[in-house]
């Protein structure tokens, strides 16, 4: 039976959860094209922005200075804020996150059931993530492979300064994905990037059905066409993409699958397999 998001009073958020460079931006563009079919896709106006991870918003809600709290200390405040944010919304409210699914020792979830209708978990073969992530960060493949194996890996977190976005613990690739697939707070729609490539329309229909969005076939087809890699790449070249970390490196790089095994050395590929074989097998990625 196809899982469905569970909308109840207060449960309005559908999390777009993914490890970085797994294709969530493409999915956000597709959803935007579906929900706003009359407008050209604007990469700087995509649905799913991480609004609840804006530091100033949390600080105002919880009356704290989040810069003076550790990432673990912030979890309880963020959980409350997610519930407050979701409380007055009409679902689905899509919100992207690269965070692992986390909880405090006494059971407070960062992504609480009482705020969450469901999660769309986007995954991608880690072999292919390496090159994409290395390009995105301007780092070597070896550095990225090490980061993908780091269970304490964080985003927007530094020991000596802060950003406007709240820090998130993205964990290692396997831990990130397993945390979302194994949680019981909300239903999950698992989307493989490779399946999106193979049949974008079918993958999008499954996401829309999960989210409870009923659209005509023509609308979905036009959304798929509007969000081809070529058109998104052109949109980035024309209008920029504010969410990318560097204005000198393109965000939409190749839009393909299977290039990882060609880009990586045998040693690098074996490291990925050694670090992540269990979850790779679970997701149907050849070990």
């Amino acid at each position: 039976m196809t899982p469905q998001a569970e909308y109840e009073p207060g449960r309005s958020i559908v999390w777009l959860a993914s490890y970085p460079k797994s294709g969530s931006t493409w999915l956000r563009a597709l959803l935007t094209a579906c929900l706003c079919p009359e407008e050209p896709v604007d990469l700087n106006q995509l649905v799913g922005t991480a609004v609840v991870f804006e530091r100033a918003q949390l600080d105002e809600h919880a009356a704290i200075d989040s810069a003076h709290h550790s990432l673990d200390e912030l979890l309880a405040y963020q959980s409350d804020y997610h519930r407050a944010f979701a409380h007055d919304q009409q679902g689905p409210v899509f919100i992207k996150t690269h965070s692992a699914f986390r909880s405090t020792p006494d059971g407070i979830d960062l992504f609480p059931r009482s705020a969450s209708a469901g999660a769309i978990v986007v995954v991608r073969n880690p072999l292919d993530i390496v090159g994409s992530y290395a390009h995105h960060e301007g780092k070597s493949a070896d550095a990225i492979i090490a980061r993908m194996a780091d269970s304490e890996a964080r985003q927007d977190a530094w020991d000596d300064r802060i950003s406007k976005a709240l820090p998130q613990r993205i964990a290692d690739w396997s831990g990130n994905i397993a945390s979302w697939l194994d949680q019981s707070a909300m239903p999950v729609c698992l989307v493989r990037y490779e399946d999106m490539l193979a049949d974008t329309k079918a993958a999008l229909i499954r996401v829309l059905e999960f989210s409870g969005i009923d659209l005509g076939d023509d609308t979905v087809q036009r959304a798929v066409e509007a969000c081809s890699f070529a058109r998104l790449s052109a949109a980035e070249a024309q209008g920029g993409f504010a969410e990318k970390p560097s204005q000198t490196r393109s965000f939409f790089r190749a839009g393909a699958g299977g290039q990882g095994i060609r880009e990586l050395t045998a040693l690098q590929a074996s490291r990925i397999h050694a670090d992540h074989c269990a979850v790779m097998e679970r997701l149907g990625y050849a070990a």
Partner: peptide, 15 residues
């Protein structure tokens, strides 16, 4: 007020 760790009233703030 739900989902919040503080309350403000005239001349009284508690958190």
């Amino acid at each position: 007020t739900q989902f919040r760790n503080w309350e403000a009233e005239p001349d009284r703030f508690i958190a």
